[in-house]
Nucleic acid binder design. Structure first.
Lengths: 247, 247
DNA sequence: CGCGGCCTTGAGAAATGTCAACTTACGTGG
DNA sequence: CCACGTAAGTTGACATTTCTCAAGGCCGCG
């Protein structure tokens, strides 16, 4: 069951494709961050030809662990949680996807994780077979994917350290620093860190409970390290936060 | 400081290279498992030309986190622990390398982890620049590396679930099942699982303490799920072990 | 035989989890 | 516009798991 809403392509006559191409990939606001960063104008038109704009509402599951991996995605606007479930319902969030992020690096025949939108989210969807076909003809793109896979692996290894050897305070501090750095690359530096996910999502990404996350954030706020604001935090004492994150 | 002992090449006259090639890569016992699995005879000779046999004693550190990533390795015989350290000495083992494993998938300009041999270990060492040069001329090899990176990422995601959401019993049971499966691919199926690492290494890979590992293994042995043997365990009740690992 | 490294076991401590109550924010319908 | 209901977040009290510290055992090796 496909919960995504594919717009444009389904209703656009073929003759409109080129017009849309110029509006979409070429004009894309997150292109410099995404897999398509290094592509030339002509390549972008090829990419555009197989791109399907897609948007989902908050909470919508658009990738389900174990199902046939038919599509790959780039996040355009919005955000998503990527997670794995145990048979008894325990959940581990393996990452959050923000604008520019690519979902589809580590794919076998089936998806290895599930993904839900955290808020109304726009994505570029690509048929996986089409996408692989395009990649095989473009060494630059292939290299870019390899670089992104390398990054992901390094991030995953850092996450193992966080989950295996850091305490709750270090995990939360590190999480906030990490989110700040990720948003900085998207929207530029800011002491206000958007947190589109709920406390339970933070807990499930850090291997903690919602209560421990809440208590730790409250303590940070009480100690004037952060200020809690709607859907995020403002960093008041960066030095202290970095020290607690041991970074 | 390079702690590896490079043999053969340093003393071999160039004229002997071809002879060594036939003895080394072509006759390699772990080739079917390694990065070089899909290579044709002629390609193997190219690989051999840049390969440097290397062997290290137990406990030798041959990769140091943060140092310039000059070499990549394939394990031939023996095993290694790959780990990251925090400034206060806490250690997270991010994986164990067994025969056939490739070290060098997730490389930036510096190594992202350290590696020590667990026992006397023989490796194929490649200069990273030479290796990349060879890869870029061989799409098969490139594909193989991409597949291996994908595998690593999936394994890393599973490890996040283990570290974030599983209890000590599940971690240990899962670890044993996992090691059994890895050895099965190398030496064929067996209920005897070699464990070349110490208890402290197991603890540091599972985010536990040595005492918790020891207690849990003792309990498994008391419950006749395993039998502890020198440098490993024998699985007595596979069904129970799989159940505890939730696999 | 004695030493050192590794492992095991026990007892008590600490961090985090669990359960429950309460607060806050927000959207909906009267 | 307010009252209500619901979802999310916070806080407290207590439980549990795992850690810490300490002692002792095992075993290979000089």
């Amino acid at each position: 069951m496909d919960l995504c809403i594919d717009i444009a392509r389904a209703i656009d006559p073929v003759s409109h494709v080129q017009a849309r191409a110029r509006l979409e990939c070429t004009a894309c606001s997150v292109r410099s961050l995404a897999v398509c960063a290094a592509m030339k104008p002509r390549e972008l038109m090829e990419l555009d030809a197989i791109m399907r704009p897609s948007q989902v509402q908050a909470k919508t599951t658009f990738i389900s662990e174990g199902e046939a991996a038919s599509s790959v995605y780039t996040i355009n606007e919005g955000s998503a949680r990527l997670y794995k479930l145990l048979s008894d319902g325990r959940r581990q969030i393996i990452g959050f996807a923000l604008p520019g992020d690519f979902l589809g690096l580590a794919l076998r025949e089936t998806y290895g994780f599930s993904a839900d939108a955290l808020e109304p989210t726009r994505m570029c969807r690509f048929d996986r077979v089409d996408f692989n076909g395009l990649v095989s003809g473009h060494p630059d793109l292939s290299t870019r994917l390899h670089d992104m896979a390398t990054s992901e692996l390094l991030i995953a290894q850092d996450q193992m350290m966080i989950l295996g050897r850091r305490n709750a305070e270090e995990r939360i501090a590190g999480f906030l620093v990490n989110m700040r750095n990720r948003w900085a690359r998207i929207r530029g530096p800011s002491v206000t860190v958007p947190l589109p996910m709920q406390r339970l999502d933070i807990a499930d990404s850090l291997g903690l409970t919602i209560e421990t996350v809440s208590r730790t954030l409250s303590r940070f706020a009480r100690d004037k390290v952060i200020l809690m604001v709607p859907d995020g935090v403002r960093i008041l004492n960066e030095k202290m936060l970095l020290k607690m994150a041991d970074q």
